[in-house]
Simulated assay, not measured.
Amino acid sequence: MIQRRDLLAAGLASLAAPLAARAETWPARPLKALQGFAAGGNADTIARLLGAEMARGLGQPIVVEAVTGAGGTLASAAVARAAPDGHTLLLATGGHAVAGALYEKLPYQTVGSFQMVSTITFFPFLLLVNPASNLRTLAEVAAQAKATNGGIAYGSAGVGSTHHLVGELLGKSAGIPMLHVPFRGDAASLTALLGNEVPMVIAPATAALPQIKAGKLRPVATTGPARWAGMPELPTVAEQGVAGFDVRSWAGWMLPAGTPQPIVERLHAETQKALQLPTVRSRLEEMGGEARGSSPQEMTAMVAAEVQKWSRVIADARIQRL
């Protein structure tokens, strides 16, 4: 029995040895950070911002690549099947959890195929109307919705987008009849709002800030748990009568499952260092977000909870799964 136990221990040690050696020599080459959306967009900008600062401490550059399509799932799939050696990261967003709820079959598990590192930023959505309208509060939106056959139409970045699901959750939570009108991205939905094609749009602050500052769009509410620092005069949905309403998107780093723990800890530490830099924090705030890191365990629990939340919203709204 002792001999068999010793052989088993030796076998386990031999399996662990390559992982330990890999962690000791890491990073051996430039890192790749994949993100699933257009170059120049929020995800791309966040990945480049954090990657540039983290590269200083790692001694290797972090090269950001856009793997676009299917709501970010192509990038997620590429990272899930990458070697778990710490050289391939995913800049995941709130859409990662939405996809886990929306798609019936994915080539990866939304949580189980990944090793979480840390969240980077959280940002709320805004309820936006045309300033030519008489809508200034959520109560006025609700009143118009109830007086309109079919409810108030709202534009979003597309069917199954987080924006779409925010509207569905708001309608259910506040008892507001909502009619979804999908567009191809934020720019198209905001153009439709400017042209009075829809009376309201749900979009992230980054997409709408230039038009808000120019007086071309009017924000009615923000969806976070507290007022957004970039627009402190704007009340939240919760402040306007929908207790506990809190919907924000987020961005964070993930690795392939099985990445050695020392590498996870190093990337986590470098992320936290970058998030403490005033230049990084101010840039994230300019984009409409709040710089906020987390432990890998906290991020794992958050993503799992998000998948469950959006699964319920999709089922309640009878949105067809893809």
Rank of each mutant, 00 (worst) to 15 (best):
Q3M: 09
A17H: 11
L19A: 15
A21C: 10
R22G: 11
E24H: 10
P27M: 06
R29M: 09
K32A: 14
A39T: 14
G40W: 08
R48K: 14
E53A: 12
E53K: 13
M54C: 11
L58S: 07
Q60C: 04
E65L: 04
A66E: 12
A70G: 00
G71W: 03
A75K: 05
G86W: 05
T88L: 00
L91R: 00
A97W: 01
A99L: 04
G100F: 11
L102D: 00
L106A: 10
G112F: 02
F114V: 07
Q115H: 00
T121C: 11
F122K: 13
F125S: 12
L126N: 04
N130Q: 06
R136W: 06
A139S: 14
A143G: 01
Q144Y: 12
G150I: 06
G150F: 11
S156E: 02
L170E: 01
K172F: 09
S173D: 12
A188T: 04
S189M: 09
A192I: 11
L193M: 10
L193C: 07
L193V: 04
E197N: 10
V198G: 07
V201Y: 10
G224I: 05
A226Q: 14
P232R: 11
P235Y: 05
V242N: 02
F245W: 09
D246Q: 12
V247C: 02
R248E: 14
S249R: 03
S249T: 13
P262G: 05
V264T: 14
E265D: 15
E265G: 02
Q272E: 15
A274F: 12
S282K: 14
E285H: 11
E286Y: 13
E290V: 15
E298H: 03
T300N: 13
M302C: 01
A304W: 05
V307H: 07
V313P: 03
D316I: 02
